[in-house]
């Protein structure tokens, strides 16, 4: 599979469940080891043995499974937002609580996270606000590329459009987005370019105006569509 994501664009990954979208994301983030193939960042080949390496290279990954792969449920909103950059917030080995709170409050305001207090346990927040906390966690690391796996799954309509606007906003800051979604409208609305996956391989790539539900469905169905039409 061959994908190329440019600076400041939203690249969509469409495909059916099990077509290898999440697997691709996890390989790109160093969470799973690829059988073959390699990654390049800024034209230089890289090997990610673990997520830590990918983070160092400027990648971020918001999992589709917020609960088991994202949130630290019993820790506070502040601690959740600053989890990734915590090592950068210490002075002489001691965490600066002030710096931690300052950053967290800045992002709570920026993303409009609704929480009674920055010290609230994150598990008590609503789905949309939890997702924003996870976004904030990655944004304060200033990544080059954020991989978003089903960023609006299980979130109410209001928060959904808020998060979509937020994602659009990021690209103006030069951050690239790789967006995985099962909701075709969402991809059509947001993406500059997209690839459609089928059975773990790229079935096709669409750019700009080409992106439409019809074209995506053609690629998803692939050759089967022809036989299907016969019946």
């Amino acid at each position: 599979m061959d994908l190329e994501i440019k600076k400041g664009e939203i690249f969509g990954l469409a495909g059916l469940l099990g077509s290898g979208r999440t697997e691709f994301a996890k390989i790109a983030f160093g969470d799973e080891i690829p059988d073959a193939g390699g990654l390049e960042v800024n034209g230089k080949p890289v090997i990610f043995k673990q997520p830590r390496d990918a983070i160092q290279a400027g990648l971020a990954f918001c999992s589709e499974d917020r609960k088991s792969e994202g949130l630290i449920p019993n820790m506070s909103v502040v601690d959740n937002i600053t989890l990734v950059i915590l090592p950068e917030l210490k002075k002489r080995g001691i965490i600066s609580k002030k710096a931690q709170r300052k950053i967290a409050e800045a992002y709570i305001e920026k993303l409009g996270i609704k929480t009674p207090s920055p010290h609230q346990r994150v598990k008590n927040l609503s789905g949309g606000n939890q997702q924003k906390v996870l976004l904030a966690r990655w944004l304060c690391k200033h990544p080059k590329l954020i991989i978003l796996d089903e960023p609006t799954r299980g979130i109410d309509v209001g928060a959904k459009s808020e998060i979509e606007i937020l994602i659009q906003d990021l690209t103006t800051q030069g951050i690239s987005i790789l967006m995985i979604s099962s909701e075709m409208e969402e991809l059509i609305r947001s993406c500059d370019r997209m690839a459609v996956l089928r059975d773990g391989v790229k079935a096709g790539e669409l750019v700009g105006k080409e992106i439409s539900e019809k074209r995506i469905m053609e690629f998803i169905a692939g050759e089967n569509a022809a036989t299907g039409a016969g019946i």
Binding site: Q50, P51, F61, S68, E69, G70, M75, L83, L86
Partner: peptide
């Protein structure tokens, strides 16, 4: 940071790993 990471790993090991 070490102690905070201990807490994070204990609370959700998988999420901690994905957060580096």
């Amino acid at each position: 940071v070490f102690a905070r990471h201990v807490e994070a790993v204990g609370d959700n090991c998988r999420a901690s790993k994905l957060s580096g």
